[in-house]
Amino acid sequence: MAETEQQSGSTLEDEAHEVPGGGVAFMVPKKEISMVPDMSKWRRSQAYADYMGFVRTLNEGVKGKSFTCDYNVSETVEKLLDLLETLDRWIDETPPADQPSRFGNRAYRTWYAKLDQEAEALVAAVLPADRCAAAPEIAVYLRESVGNATRIDYGTGHEAAFAAFLCCLCKVGALQADDRLAIVFKVFNRYLEVMRKLQKTYRMEPAGSQGVWGLDDFQFLPFIWGSSQFVDHPTVEPRHFIDERVVNEHHQDYMFLECIKFINEMKTGPFAEHSNQLWNISAVASWSKVNQGLVRMYKAECMEKFPVIQHFKFGSLLSIQPVKP
């Protein structure tokens, strides 16, 4: 149960939103991790357990399945696709500004201001009528998922906010267990398309990039779920994803290869030089080992790194409270 009592220094919008008929008190999420020692609170939190559980559940769900397999597409999934279509349309309506600096086009701020203003209404349109009280809480994760308007950058922390947004929709019952495949193959995949369009249109900087030592400048989760798709694949092995012919042949069916295709389009020079970590992964013997290694790497490089988690926000659905024994 979220606290309804206001903390000192909080604003009116931090007050909890009660669901009609009682039950869970929703609250506008806020930052709780302000110093490195706070990371232990995060690792023990219900939010961490729920978030990583969500990532693993989807990872298991897509194992060995391509985009072309049969799966359920619910009304909520269709509404989420409409939401992402709206964000895509706004990019078309907000062309890049003419400016001297090559990166960080300021027109992104105009685009972001529209989302900032409309986020609650967009989320309310996705939620069942009896869960609309959750919109202010869940909308925070949508706003956080598209990059930072001050720095005009985007990175794995923003991607994590979108996964948190989807996790919250599951927790309020808007998305169900049989939506698992559609969450990854339809919704998350469409989100990636919109983010790539944002990155290209407004020349966004990678947030907290580790350069050549990072897995990718912008994303991580599609490599995890994408490698799971390939588990037990009869012909494509990890060594094949650096072959452009294989990428061009299979990218429409597999998320991992779609990511590689985007890297190939955006970067020049030998793959081993601009994407060294991925080059190393191509030498791993099996996709199941790649997948297990990427989950470990995600925890170490994203989920347990203070520069990423200091921006994460906690409410009633993803709570900073310790996991109950």
Rank of each mutant, 00 (worst) to 15 (best):
V323A: 11
V36Y: 12
D232C: 02
L294W: 08
V146N: 00
L122V: 04
K200F: 06
D82T: 11
D116N: 01
W90M: 03
Q252R: 14
K197I: 02
N59W: 02
F256K: 09
R180A: 12
F26R: 08
D153G: 00
S101R: 12
I281A: 14
A177Q: 06
A97P: 00
F67T: 02
N105C: 05
M27K: 06
P222H: 04
V290T: 08
I281T: 10
I152D: 00
M39E: 06
N59F: 04
E78I: 11
G104D: 00
C302E: 10
C132L: 11
G293Q: 13
V231E: 11
F26C: 08
R180K: 12
D243L: 02
F188W: 03
M255A: 05
N291G: 06
R151P: 00
E249A: 14
C168A: 11
Q6D: 07
F165C: 14
Y51G: 09
Y298W: 15
C259I: 02
A25C: 08
P234V: 09
R102P: 02
A182H: 09
G21S: 13
Q310Y: 06
M204Q: 08
V172P: 04
L294C: 10
I183E: 01
S228K: 02
L198P: 08
F67E: 05
P128D: 10
